[in-house]
Design a binder for these strands. Sequence first.
DNA 1: ATGACGGATCTAATCCGA
Length: 266
Amino acid sequence: MRLTIATWNINSVRLRETLVAKLLSEKAPDVVCLQETKSPVDLIPRKLFAELGYPHMVARGEKGYNGVAILSRHALEDAGQIDFCAKGDARHVAAKVDLGAVSPIAIHNLYVPAGGDEPDPGANPKFDHKLKFVEEIAARFAKPEARSVLVGDLNIAPLENDVWSHKQLLKIVSHTPVETEGLSKAQTAGGWIDTTRRFVPESEKLYSWWSYRARDWAASDKGRRLDHIWASPDLGDGLSGAQVLKEARGWEKPSDHAPVFTEFEL
DNA sequence: ATGACGGATCTAATCCGA
């Protein structure tokens, strides 16, 4: 059977409920993982999503910041959250997707801290938090469970062509060597497959985020690939496609992130 | 200048995003 998973930093699920609805009705992924929902769970417009064919949701939220949610056409079993860095914030949630005829898939939905401006963990506690968060990801996901997927806004653009200018971004938080090496370590430790790059060669520029501050985001096209879908090694043979839905960055009142899709044939 | 926007909050100016 075919399974399509999307991840999208929505930058407020309540303000952009119509954009989520547009994604669900026009692109019809099986599962959508959202980050920066910026909403308590009970205020997420889940009725709207249910009416569009997504009656299942597993989420964690807080007022104003962070927040992660998994919406699904298939039944979900809440698989809990990991309290990375013991902050008690809503940056991770996990679920098992019940696929009936075939074995379930585990999904981990993550929102890694942005890390502030100064890429110095001694001077900037936010950057320190980010580095520790990534270290904890590496430790926790070093031995992937079978049939699992790790997705989310990882806030790191790991490859040279994941940013508009490798050279100019080497000292910019999201593309510093300590971050990209940390993320690569987490990926290789578990043998995780960067599913997007399975289908878009590393020699090609590819972004999932474009700043709100540009006068014309599409014309300047100075983006970064911050949003990722990783698959456990055993799912490698089942990968059938991947894409960044760049058009969504141009929708009305958009998020600054575009949705990222991966398709499996399971 | 990459580039000065956009969201949430104790609705005003402040924190945060990356």
